[in-house]
Amino acid sequence: MFHWLEKHPFFFAVGVFVVIAYAGLIEVLPNFMEKARPIKGLKPYTVLELAGKEVYKKDNCIACHSQLIRPFKAETDRYGQYSMSGEYAYDRPFLWGSKRTGPDLHRVGRYRTPDWHANHMWNPKSVVPDSIMPAYKHQFTNVADLETAYAEAVTVKKVFNTPYGDDIKPGKAAFEKYKKEKILPEALKIAKAMKRDDLVKMVESGKVPEVVALVAYLERLK
């Protein structure tokens, strides 16, 4: 049979495809039947947090940080409660990572604070003298892309029924309104908690520095 296949490339290719495809079906599909179930009380990311998640992706923190606490005593002692599937229901994409050059961050919001992050992102060595994490000073001047984050909220609300309020709707005007009423006040709170006047000033002028969005996101990781 195999020798016959080797003379008939079309059937050979079909054979290979069947063998590789059905393993995929069995491996991946069953989990989809159960859909993504958010745990009780889980709220979708705010637009500011989404913007922060984009900063996390852009500066690629996932290169060094995981967001998955495994069920071992050594990990729960270090980082807190082990991670549960339903906590990730709004994570598109998932950001578990595959390497811990730095510590896990899945619950970092519970044991670090905005002012600590402000010190740490500006210069990690100022709080952890031996740190090998790069300083991310550019995040203090770069402006976060709130519009794209808002677009993401609109999209996931529409396409995946992510439970956002009615004020998340398409269009520039809706965005501007939402930004003024929701995003900027939230950002101001974070900026103040970070105890840096330059950040507060920037937010007050209507621009959210990347680091403020990022810290909003990190604070959300609980």
Binding site: G24, E27, V28, N31, F32, A36, S85, E87, Y88, A89, Y90, D91, R92, P93, F94, W96, D145, E147, T148, A149, Y150, A151, E152, V154, T155, V156, K158, V159, F160, P170, G171, K172, F175
Partner: peptide, 29 residues
């Protein structure tokens, strides 16, 4: 995201079709 939000934000930005654990499964597959 650009096309679902009435033309907002970066046109090249997208979100994954899968979320969380499901996304992880497809990603590592």
């Amino acid at each position: 995201t650009y096309f679902f939000s009435g033309g907002l934000g970066a046109w090249y930005h997208s979100v994954s079709m899968y979320a969380g654990t499901n996304d992880a499964l497809v990603q590592w597959w």
